[in-house]
């Protein structure tokens, strides 16, 4: 769904990687929630995610969904950040998918994720790129 309102309200998480830290058990939630799934706590302090992490698992999408047909093949990974938070992201700057591997160190970088035609909303967020590249 290419919704401008949705893109706007998700800026804090997409652009600034804002998460929430449970004041009871210190679990970090990304995206933030109203209740901590680990302890039931309902009070949180803001927390910015670290940008360094490693690949937990990955794939290369060869048959894309609507909206991503211009970005195929599309490498995607589940990344675990230095503080244990996991998130799904595209992997950027991949010249040869054969070089991707589980455990690969990555860094999150602010990138364009998708776009709604020539006149619609451009969606930005973070992609993972190989650390040190």
């Amino acid at each position: 769904m290419f919704s401008p309102a949705r893109a706007w309200r998700e800026y804090p998480q997409r652009y600034r990687l804002e998460a929430a830290k449970c004041t009871e058990c210190s679990k970090i939630l990304y995206p933030p929630r109203l209740v901590c799934p680990a302890c039931g706590g309902r009070t949180f302090t803001p927390e910015i995610l670290p940008r360094e992490g490693k690949v937990v698992t990955f794939t290369v999408i060869r048959v894309p969904p609507a909206g991503f047909t211009e970005q195929t093949p599309l490498p995607l990974a589940l990344v675990e950040l230095a503080n244990g938070v996991r998130l799904m992201v595209q992997i950027g700057d991949v010249e040869n998918p054969e070089t991707l591997e589980i455990g690969m160190p990555v860094r999150l970088e602010f990138r364009r994720i998708s776009w709604d035609g020539e006149a619609g909303v451009i969606f930005y967020g973070h992609k993972a790129v190989r650390a040190g590249s």
Binding site: R6, I61, G67, L78, M88, I113, S114
Partner: peptide
Amino acid sequence: EWEGFHGVTFPGLYAMLARI
């Protein structure tokens, strides 16, 4: 919002599980 936004597909999610 947190998976589909990045272009993941169902084969993609199961591919990630397969790799694990």
